[in-house]
């Protein structure tokens, strides 16, 4: 519920004088609180969260739960601009409490025109107003067989970078997606990882290296790629671990990756075949992966297949 309200202190470096690449996992826990939650919506910030998957509510929704998880007492708030981009999917906050989101069609494309599926929207942390923030270039091969564009967003604190993964233009035989590193301040692409149909992304710090982890729409494999302090990619993606054979379906694709306070990766897996099957028919499983320092590899600690996602 409190997925975006991270109260973690920003610890830049635990050990002064270490090499620049020796970073600590909490370095990416910097997300700020949007001021408008209290000022405009009048909601209690620690009891509120953003959602793009509330039943029958298109767009971004701010939800306040004054009850408990077992006995929720919910209030909803939607700024008048929050429905403008149709149905949305990923949500990310930056350091100052701005919210970033991107469209994803829900069941049909009535409210989600194909040409807008590579557009990232920003909700101003102070006013709550949502506006177009950045348009990732649309491939020439845009086709109605693939109704999706940006499906993953991830904020990287150190570099003030927003990673956006898109699968726009891909078809069954050709991968045309990619991960874009966007400098939030300059509003420009600083790096680009081409030919990956990435969806869910997460950052963790392994062996003193910053690494971006991502799953794709093509397989259950999770890849990782090194990233520099300024957010640029430092090499080629490598296979990290897989969801193949795990969970209730055995072929889940990664919808989202979070790293917890211990550096573990929480991987949210769903069925995904580049179609518009309703999400409610696609129960989500949560896979918890730990890094084994001795074996130098990730291992699956637990699987919870009853998880439901509200993003």
């Amino acid at each position: 519920m409190t997925r975006f309200i991270f109260i973690w202190a920003i610890i830049c470096f635990l050990f002064a004088g270490c090499k620049e690449k020796q970073v600590e996992f909490r370095a990416n826990a910097c997300k700020g609180s949007p001021v408008f939650v209290k000022r405009v919506a009048g909601f209690i910030t620690p009891k509120s969260y953003f959602s793009t998957s509330e039943i029958r509510k298109m767009g971004l929704v701010l939800v306040e739960n004054q009850g408990s998880q077992e006995k929720p007492s919910l209030r909803y708030y939607q700024h008048s601009s929050w429905k403008n981009a149709g149905w949305l999917s990923p949500i990310q906050l930056d350091e100052t409490g701005n919210v970033y989101t991107a469209p994803a069609p829900f069941i049909n494309v009535l409210d989600n025109p194909l040409q807008k599926q590579n557009t990232i929207y920003k909700v101003d942390g102070v006013t709550g107003e949502m506006r177009e923030f950045f348009q990732i270039p649309l491939p020439d091969s845009l086709n109605s067989n693939n109704p999706y564009g940006v499906l993953g967003l991830l904020y990287f604190c150190e570099g003030n970078i927003l990673y956006a993964s898109t699968i726009a233009g891909s078809d069954r035989h050709v991968i045309r997606g990619g991960i874009y590193a966007i400098d939030i301040k300059e509003r420009k692409i600083v790096d680009h990882l081409p030919q990956v149909d990435a969806i869910g992304m997460g950052i963790s710090y392994v062996n003193g290296e910053r690494r971006l982890y991502f799953g794709t729409g093509r397989s259950s494999e999770i890849f990782s790629v090194q990233i520099n302090a300024d957010g640029k990619f430092g090499g080629k993606p490598e296979p990290a671990f897989t969801l193949e054979g795990l969970g209730p379906r055995g072929d889940d694709k990664v919808r989202r990756i979070r790293s917890d306070e211990n550096g573990n990766l929480l991987v949210y897996g769903i069925e995904f075949n580049y179609n518009l099957i309703a999400p409610r028919e696609k129960p989500e499983a949560l896979y918890e992966f730990w890094y084994n320092n001795e074996g130098k590899k990730w291992w699956c600690k637990s699987i919870n297949s009853k998880t439901t996602s509200t993003e």
Partner: peptide, 19 residues
């Protein structure tokens, strides 16, 4: 106003909600 507009079609790479 509650309901769905379902498209039917191919299982992979499609705009189908029911495949």
């Amino acid at each position: 106003g509650f309901g769905y507009s379902d498209a039917i079609g191919c299982p992979y790479f499609s705009q189908a909600a029911v495949v």
